[in-house]
Every structure is written in structure tokens, then in C-alpha cells.
Design a protein around this nucleic acid. Structure first.
Lengths: 210, 210
DNA sequence: ATTTTTCTAAGGGTATTCCCTAAGTTTTCA
DNA sequence: TGAAAACTTAGGGAATACCCTTAGAAAAAT
């Protein structure tokens, strides 16, 4: 008997997965949750073998939550559920301890196969995503063409730029010199391949950094 | 007996709504579809009273599809399903003939109420969206707080800004003086309520002007 | 414990954007 | 056809962003 939990803020998704699984005798849905907090609290009492986890939750960032869960409850295997087909995104999630990755357009067979595969301790990726990863992994790696990694500070500056703050305002907000803010902005531009602040925001949105 | 169809490329959403409705005796789900094309073809044979339509479909833009359906099959009442909480978005959909608007985190009660309300011929909006629309509609109207209308030239400049071009480069691209470009940019900022070019792009993306 | 990365910040420019006012021309629409 | 809206241009100045280099201190990773 495989115990499954589901966390998704879209109620219909929650009920959809539940209804798809309820005919399976070897699978039991033990709990469903609409946010990260509830999920963590419920896990204090009983942990599932597998958690279907929506990455876009209202309260906690899904990637962070994945990390938390795999650390606090190592027996729980997380299968990420999203609409992002972005390969870099998949990578980040897997790096943070997820065992599988499913798009929300997955059909019943894929859902079941994901559960079976992951419960065996193997990683499960949806077919088309697997292909994409392979294709892109064959590109150059050193240039980090995929998901540019911003540092904590850079992320803060990025956020502030997005909020239309000026360098001066950002420096006051973060208690650092304007010159430092500029340095961060230059680094962000360089990492994202942007020509100016507009490009930073444009690309950051595209790459889901915001 | 109310006949319902569902169109959503996320299979779990499809099954979720279906399972939520299957206990209701006065409602019958007559068909489910994963894309716009299938939906239109199926409607040639039989039309539902109500269609739950995901606005983000792989093949056809949901807003356009709403328009098509309400024209070709005027008996079908469309309830839009999305994650967008953007008020301007809601307006656009309703303007194109939709009878209701639900976020995907809607619970069973809301789903049923939406069906009942819409089948009576009334419009149904989810509570929190209704509030937002009211709030924003009470603002100044002459300034077109909702969907700011940009002129043809302003749209071109907006596009160029989005492409990270400088004022100089834009002027060369459009064969106008840099000063004119600046004038347009100022007008765009004013219309969108942006503080700078970053804001222009940010808001333009939010309001789907790009 | 040591290397690497990140964070910090400065000087010294240049380029660009932002903001105001003003006004002639063209297009659109009632 | 006349009025309104949109498009065009401009001057001038303040503010901000961009770009380069350099470099010490702090934090993180190995």
C-alpha cells in the first residue's frame, strides 16, 4: 500500500488527482492540502510515501518547500507538479531533492507510472521533459545558458528593480552604498545577458526569477 | 438537467471538475476536451449548456475561443477558468461573451453556484474578483484605469523599449527624432502609471500589452 | 584551513533617461 | 468640415543609469 498526499492550491487539481487514484487498490490518498504550511503540519502526524507537490503555492515557494520536506521527512518522496516546461526549472527542483516531475496535463497512466517508479526509489520524469533535458544538457555547460544563478543579494536587488526603485532608493532599502547596488545591477545584467534594467526585468520574468 | 462540458489541457483539472460534479443529479458532464479544436468539433454534434473553459490552451487563445463559441453556439454559456487574478484580464473575457469567471482554486460550492447562476442567465464572478473589480471601477474612469489604450506609435515604442533599445536606437528604427521617442515614452509611462522604463515593461506584461 | 564566491565600495567618467514646457502638423472622427 | 486626438519636434537641465577598474572584507564551499 502506497500512501500518497497531494498539495495544490487549485482545488480542482486536488480533487482531480484524488479521483484518478481512488480506483487503484495499492494506492491510498491519506491527505490533501491547499498550502505548504498545512502540509508541513500534517506531516508531523503522518507522512505519506509520496507527495504530489504543486510548485506554485500561495504561501511557500515550492522549491524551498521541497528542500524542507526532503530534509525533515526523508521518507517522503516529492513529485513536483507544475505547468513549467522550463528545463532549468526542472533541474532546480530535482537538485533540491524531488524524485519526479509531472506537468499538470499528465494523464492517469503517467500519474500511476510516476508513483510506481518513484516508490521504487527511482526518479521519474515525464517523457517529453526527459527529452528536453537531454537535448539541452548536450549544450555547453560552462556558460550556464540555462538557469543563471543569482546570489541572495542580487535577488534582492532584482526584486527592488522590479519594484521600479532607483539605485538610490534600493541602497537605502538594503542599507548599502549606491555604488554597491550598481555593482549588483551590473552583475545581474551580465548574468542574465541584459542590456539594461528593462532587459533585467524582461528576462527575469521569462526565466521565472520573479 | 444542466449539460456541462469542460475544456482544459491539464488532465487532472479536467478529472477534478468532473469528479466534483458527478454526484450532482441535476448536472451531467457530457464531454471533456483537452484543446480548443476538439471542443469546437464536438460542439458541432452536441452543445452543452455550460462550458468550463481554461483560458490558457495550447492551441487557441482562450479569449478568442470564447468569442468564437459565443458567436457560433449562442446557447453555450462560457465560464472562464484561469489562475489570472488580473482584473483587466477578467474584463476582457467578459467583454468577449463569457458568463462567468472562476479561479482554479475554486471549491465545490463555488463551482456549483457558478453553474446555477450562469444557467439562470446571470453572470457569475468569484467573490474576491468581484470585489477587486468594484474597487478598481470606482476609481477615475476617464483615465482608463483598467485597460490603458496605447496609440499605434506608442505601441511601437513600447515594443522597442521591451527589446532593450535606447532612445537613440528607437528613433533610428522608427525614423523619428529621439525627442519624439522620449515624448512617447513619457506618455506611455503616464498611461500605464509607471515610474520608469522598467515599470513600463513590468506593467505592459501584466496587462498583456506585449 | 584554504580556496572560491559573494558582498561591499570607491573613483571617474559617459550615456541615457526623466521631466518640464511649448507648439506645429497630421490623422481621426463626429 | 471642424474639433479632438495623435504625432511630431525641440530646448535645457536634473537625475539616473551605465561602464570600467580595483580591491578589501565577509561568507561559503571544499
Amino acid at each position: 500500500m502506497i500512501k500518497v498526499s497531494i498539495t495544490d492550491d487549485h482545488y480542482v487539481v486536488l480533487k482531480g488527482i484524488e479521483s484518478l487514484l481512488k480506483d487503484e487498490k495499492h494506492i491510498r490518498v491519506i491527505s490533501i492540502h491547499e498550502n505548504g504550511q498545512d502540509t508541513l503540519e500534517a506531516f508531523e502526524v503522518e507522512q505519506p510515501d509520496i507527495l504530489f507537490l504543486d510548485i506554485n503555492l500561495p504561501d511557500i515557494n515550492g522549491i524551498v518547500l521541497t528542500k524542507t520536506i526532503t530534509k525533515s521527512f526523508p521518507n517522503v518522496r516529492v513529485i513536483a507538479l507544475t505547468n513549467h516546461e522550463d528545463v532549468s526549472f526542472v533541474k532546480r527542483i530535482l537538485d533540491n531533492g524531488a524524485f519526479g516531475y509531472l506537468l499538470k496535463n499528465a494523464h492517469k497512466e503517467e500519474l500511476l507510472q510516476a508513483i510506481d517508479t518513484v516508490s521504487k526509489g527511482e526518479k521519474y520524469l515525464q517523457k517529453d521533459i526527459e527529452k528536453k533535458i537531454l537535448n539541452q544538457s548536450l549544450g555547453r555547460k560552462e556558460f550556464s545558458a540555462l538557469q543563471p544563478k543569482l546570489t541572495r543579494r542580487e535577488t534582492e536587488v532584482l526584486q527592488a528593480i522590479y519594484e521600479q526603485l532607483t539605485t538610490q532608493e534600493i541602497s537605502e532599502k538594503l542599507f548599502i552604498s549606491p555604488k554597491t547596488v550598481e555593482a549588483h545591477r551590473m552583475n545581474i545584467m551580465s548574468k542574465l545577458g541584459a542590456k539594461n534594467s528593462v532587459g533585467i526585468v524582461k528576462i527575469a520574468i521569462q526565466k521565472q526569477l520573479l
